[in-house]
């Protein structure tokens, strides 16, 4: 799985690493919402805060930039679309399209917002282990009625477990078919079917075996799980994030 997610957990003992995952998840959502609805001042505030956390985590800036490149195209599209569609006084005209002052500002803001939300997600992923995410989801869904929180957490763990299996099986299947000259067939539907059918059959068989092995190890949904304990520091962190979002809301627009 290492090759498909360059950006994942970075072992460490930073402030963010030590925060209870439930609080981290809550803060991630608060901060993302804050960033999505914020103006320039609010965005600046959130950007400084996340940059500080990245620095405290001793994450090399190049790594962060490399991860963001996946989003470059997406962010660029938003910037362009906003820039070219906003109404206002035109600065320059070319090919019948007017470039407006408002458009430029709006485009830059939209790009900044999206970039910031992505950065926040990266921060969270870098400082949180998978099992912590699972436990956090389980614990947060617990009070919601009619939602089988333990099953959902278990499914999230299984989901991550199956991804590398699927990719390696797909690779093996494709290699075996290339060895028998599948490239000579031009029809993409034929090739897709010939790849997907053995891939699904093999992985469903594996899933079946896994279910049996889980059963053999006494699987129940009421099993005990890793407990999470909130400490004073976690509340302080949540408080800081809430404080920051109030500050961001109350800042004067300009």
């Amino acid at each position: 799985m290492a090759e498909l997610t360059a950006f994942r957990y970075h072992p460490g003992a930073s402030i963010l690493h030590r925060v209870d995952p439930r609080f981290k998840l809550g803060c991630l959502i608060i901060a993302s919402m804050g960033a999505l609805n914020g103006d320039a001042a609010a965005l600046g505030l959130w950007s400084i805060a996340s940059a500080a956390l990245f620095a405290e985590m001793r994450m090399p800036l190049m790594t962060v930039a490399r991860e963001l490149r996946y989003f470059a195209l997406l962010i660029l599209l938003v910037v362009l679309a906003r820039t070219l569609t906003a109404a206002g006084e035109p600065l320059i005209r070319f090919w019948g399209v007017a470039l407006t002052r408002q458009g430029l500002i709006e485009g830059a803001l939209a790009g900044w917002r999206l970039g910031l939300v992505v950065m926040l997600g990266l921060l969270f992923m870098a400082a949180t282990r998978t099992w912590q995410v699972k436990s956090a989801v389980e614990s947060l869904l617990k009070p919601v009625p009619f939602i089988p929180h333990k099953r959902i957490a278990a499914m999230m763990g299984l989901l991550l477990r199956f991804i590398p299996l699927i990719l390696s099986t797909a690779r093996d299947t494709a290699d075996a078919q290339r060895a028998r000259g599948i490239e000579n067939r031009r029809n993409p539907v034929f090739r897709l079917i010939k790849l997907a059918v053995p891939l699904l059959r093999k992985t469903f068989l594996d899933a079946d075996r896994l279910a049996t092995a889980m059963d053999a190890r006494c699987y129940t949904e009421s099993r005990s799980t890793q407990p999470l304990f909130a400490r004073g520091g976690d509340w302080a962190f949540l408080g800081a994030v809430c404080g920051l979002s109030f500050l961001a809301l109350s800042l004067p627009c300009f």
Binding site: L28, F71, G121, F124, L160
Partner: peptide
């Protein structure tokens, strides 16, 4: 929840609220 399951090996609310 930030698990890397969306396109490009990323996760997070950012993807979900983005244009796609």
């Amino acid at each position: 929840c930030g698990l890397p399951v969306f396109a490009g090996g990323t996760g997070g609310v950012g993807r979900l609220v983005g244009p796609t």
